[in-house]
Design a protein around this nucleic acid. Structure first.
Length: 752
DNA sequence: GAGTTTGAAACT
DNA sequence: CAGTTTCAAACTC
């Protein structure tokens, strides 16, 4: 009975609520509230990406209209979904949004309504325990986000765990519990409030709160992901929960023992929960070696089976969700600094994610967690988080830090197909490919890479972060441009500046949305391609595929070509080099020695390049290369003639907008990977074009981990692994995927 | 961390 | 379109 009522009520509520701010006061609202045990939490939605703000164009880009419309509302949706029973949430959310973005109030309201429909559907579809579990699942991402938030976050794990769990044979058990989970969740929610930490709130409500952002999916895909969730089986949801829990443990999300308990409870059935130590043990194990093991298992499974078979549909969904979460990376990063042990225990920190994140950090301090294990391989930085999709794509430098998670792969296959289908298809995404990727992925290596990264001198790391992630999480240091010119990487990437930016007088913030948009328009009017990816891949994916072997890295080219005079196109000063592509006839560079291919068509082998570099500069150059994997790229080229794409390319790209389809960039060949560890950091592998991975991984970084050999077994071909390459910088395998699936924000020009 | 170098972006 | 200036990242010390 309740279910039915809830089902019905939500729609009405939401519909009404959106438009009416004070809906809360209405009798209906109260009634609804009474029905649900959960109390609405106000969520704060902060999006840094322009897209979220407004780019109208985005919608056009997305394949499905709904997606666009949903975009902003995503997070709203989630809340609603989460709160299905809680009418207030939706309202609250709407309110919060309104509060923040007055401009978008109306839009939000509309979106909400649209979302409501979606939500309703979901419920109907799953109407049962599943729904509940679903809700729970939704929240999980938040937790993950938190993890991510931690600076070190290596958290990629969570996703992996989730996947693993889902796949595990034990899944049956999980399923059984699933229903209970939902129930428990509610119960926990209630109970949570009782408990000191209000852990429950934390997890559940946290989403609503600031954490909301985390939940909100930046990409259109997110919406899709949700859809997938709906259908997902209870098992999946359960898996997610479990994964979340485990992940949380790994990341120390639980800041305090108490929280852990809560989490455990939530995770497992109510039965196990509080009192069942076994659960704890498991989780604990997860944190350490076991976690790794599981991951590996998952990977293996993935390998064995094509993504499809092994990976449950829901699985994919989860992945998507994760992606959404990851985007928040920025937030996390921001949060990092604040960590304080004191924060950790905030007694009743009902508060939000922020607190949690802090707690996590704190907990870490207190309780050393073996991040490396899980995180090591997976460290995710979520570069994309908080940033515009484009940004995600673009970032490549940090690829190393990020490792590709096997998980991603599966998702890719599904999610891509569903959502981005078109894009994916273009890119040659094959389900099989996905599977391949998984197979190739070598957690161990990833781990190694991760360590390497860690070992890097602070400075190098910093650079990587800055540079690499940048794409994902770009950071600028503008002093005079106000971040309203293309000089600003953030602005150029279509993302708002965030805390990590050291810019001065920055106008590239949501607050100045109008200014940003106006400026952007102005720039585009001058140069329609100003915000287009600088590196363009070959247009035909298909042709590319076929040609890949033949294509040199140059297959991807810088849009306008470079104009280097002194760097010989061997440094990042060179946009071509930075983008991981060879120079072309469009370049006016002098003394071109671009490792990815000189403008005269010759390709300097990595060795050659290095040699030259060495001779010229030597070591540093080498170092740098490593940092970004330029070497890797080089290697790739040699081996496979893979085309590297710059991060930015990858990211943005192309797809949606009209930019020529990127050719598939092939990543490095196996040889590369095999050869240089540094290389491995980079990327990607993968199969399908980057996009695929990106999508899947979403945030997962990945990395290079994936093996050099072709990921897909399919494509592995020596000729090129798949296209997608990731350029060194780009590595961002996951992100790339994102890009494809989600068009970065469209360039104004395109819109026109 | 400060200073230099570099080349794109912006301006003329 | 070419030349110059401005700018911020990349790089060096």
């Amino acid at each position: 009975m309740e279910m039915e009522m809830e089902m019905d009520t939500p729609e009405k509520k939401t519909q009404i609520a959106n438009p009416i701010p004070k809906f809360e006061e209405s009798p209906v609202f109260n009634y609804i509230n009474n029905l649900s045990p959960i109390k609405p939490v106000k969520s704060i939605h902060v999006t840094q990406t322009f897209s979220s703000l407004t780019f109208a164009s985005l919608p056009s880009i997305f394949a499905s209209p709904q997606v666009n419309s949903r975009k902003e509302s995503r997070f709203l949706k989630r809340h609603q979904e989460l709160d299905l029973e809680i009418p207030k949430d939706s309202n609250a959310v709407a309110d919060s949004d309104n509060g923040k973005d007055t401009a978008g109030q109306n839009e939000n309201a509309k979106k909400l309504q649209g979302n409501l429909d979606v939500n309703i559907n979901v419920r109907e579809a799953s109407a049962d325990p599943v729904d509940e579990s679903f809700e729970f699942v939704i929240e999980l991402p938040q937790i993950l986000k938190y993890d991510c938030a931690s600076p070190d976050c290596d958290v990629a794990l969570p996703e992996t765990d989730a996947e693993c769990i889902a796949q595990q044979p034990d899944g049956s058990v999980l399923q059984q519990h699933t229903e209970n989970h939902a129930l428990e969740i509610e119960g926990d929610a209630k109970g949570i409030s009782r408990q000191e930490g209000d852990p429950v709130q934390f997890s559940l409500d946290g989403s609503n709160s600031k954490s909301t952002d985390v939940l909100s999916f930046s990409s259109p895909n997110d919406a899709i992901a949700f859809r997938g969730l709906i259908p997902t089986s209870p098992v999946i949801s359960t898996g997610l929960l479990t994964s979340l829990v485990s992940s949380a443990a790994q990341y120390e999300i639980y800041g305090s023992p108490e929280r852990r308990q809560l989490l455990h409870q939530i995770t497992s059935d109510g039965h196990y929960a509080e009192e069942d130590p076994s659960l704890l043990t498991v989780e604990a194990g997860m944190e350490t070696d076991e976690f790794r093991t599981e991951m590996e298992e998952c990977l293996n499974k993935g390998e064995g089976g094509d993504g499809q078979g092994l990976v449950p549909f829901g699985y994919k969904m989860s992945a998507d969700m994760h992606r959404g979460m990851r985007r928040r990376c920025l937030d996390f990063e921001v949060a990092e600094p604040p960590r304080k042990s004191s924060d950790v225990h905030g007694p009743s920190s009902s508060s939000l994610v922020v607190e949690q994140s802090k707690s996590n950090k704190a907990s870490k301090d207190k309780q050393p967690i073996h991040v490396k294990q899980g995180g090591g391989s997976k460290k995710r930085i979520l570069p994309g988080i908080g940033l515009h999709l484009n940004a995600l794509t673009s970032s490549s430098k940090n690829i190393e830090q990020e490792t590709v998670l096997p998980e991603c792969v599966p998702q890719l296959s599904t999610s891509n197909q569903d959502n981005m289908n078109s894009i994916a298809s273009e890119n040659e995404m094959d389900p099989a490919v996905n599977g391949l990727q998984l197979t190739e992925y070598d957690p161990t290596q990833a781990f190694v890479n991760y360590e390497e990264i860690n070992q890097l001198s602070p400075r190098k790391r910093r650079r990587r972060d800055l540079s690499g992630e940048p794409e994902a999480c770009k950071r600028c240091n503008c002093k005079k441009s106000k971040c309203l010119k293309l000089y600003c990487e953030c602005f150029a990437a279509g993302v708002y500046c965030i805390e990590p930016c050291a810019c001065q007088d920055c106008f590239n913030k949501p607050i100045h949305e109008e200014t940003v948009l106006a400026t952007r328009k102005q720039i585009e009017s001058r140069n329609p391609l100003a915000f287009a990816p600088k590196v363009i891949r070959a247009s035909d994916p298909v042709s590319e595929i076929g040609d890949e072997s033949n294509k040199t890295p140059a297959s991807a080219r810088h849009k306008r070509g470079c104009n280097c005079k002194k760097s010989n196109c061997l440094k990042k000063y060179c946009e071509c080099y930075q983008g991981g592509v060879g120079c072309s006839i469009n370049c006016r560079c002098e003394g071109c020695k671009n490792a990815f291919g000189t403008k005269d068509g010759s390709i300097v082998t990595g060795m050659d390049c290095e040699t030259e570099d060495d001779s010229e500069k030597s070591e540093k150059g080498a170092d740098d290369h490593l940092a970004w994997t330029a070497d890797g790229q080089k290697n790739l080229e040699r081996n496979d003639s893979v085309i590297l794409s710059t991060p930015s390319h990858l990211n943005r790209p192309s797809l949606p907008w009209g930019f020529p389809p990127k050719t598939n960039q092939r990543m490095g060949g196996p040889g590369l990977l095999g050869t240089s560890s540094s290389f491995m950091k980079q990327p990607p592998p993968q199969t399908s074009p980057d996009d695929t991975l990106g999508i899947l991984c979403g945030g997962t970084p990945t990395v290079g981990i994936i093996k050099g050999t072709s990921p897909n077994g399919k494509r592995v071909s020596p000729p090129h692994t798949n296209s997608s390459s990731s350029s060194p910088g780009q590595r961002t395998g996951g992100r790339r995927l994102i890009l494809r699936s989600i068009p970065s924000f469209p360039s104004l020009s395109q819109q026109h």
